[in-house]
């Protein structure tokens, strides 16, 4: 029942709320690229907030939690970018009304 414990709990709750938003976006979004948007950005922020909350609850674990956060911050954008590139190259169907400047450029200058 200290002040840092309550701050840590609230940070963990915020992180879990972002994870829930990512889950809802993963179910409700219409096509693949929107799902990549929801499923990697929101989970990165949610996991980092949860790690910060755990660091407030247990200050002696801060170094290890910082290492985990660094790895997530390095690897998660790379994986989402590689996945989006693969999906774009294999011609995944997009929802109606999508503006695709990359495909237009490829058609003009093959």
């Amino acid at each position: 029942m200290t002040i840092s414990g309550i701050i840590g709990g609230i940070l963990m709750l915020c992180g879990a709320a972002f994870l829930l938003l990512a889950g809802i976006g993963l179910v409700r979004m219409p096509d693949l690229f929107n799902r990549i948007q929801a499923g990697t950005k929101a989970t990165t922020l949610g996991t980092l907030l949860t790690l910060a909350g755990a660091a407030c609850l247990r200050p002696e674990w801060t170094l290890k939690l910082l290492l985990i956060g660094l790895f997530i911050l390095l690897t998660n954008p790379i994986s989402s970018q590689v996945l989006a590139r693969a999906a774009h190259r294999t011609g995944t169907p997009k929802t109606a009304g999508t503006v695709d400047r990359l495909a237009d450029d490829r058609e003009e200058r093959p």
């Binding site: 993963l26 693949l32 499923g39 990697t40 989970t43 996991t47 949860t50 996945l83």
Partner: peptide, 14 residues
């Protein structure tokens, strides 16, 4: 499914 796999992994870290 790959996007869902990535999300499941991060929630498992939590």
């Amino acid at each position: 499914r790959v996007v869902a796999f990535d999300t499941l992994t991060l929630i498992s870290v939590v």
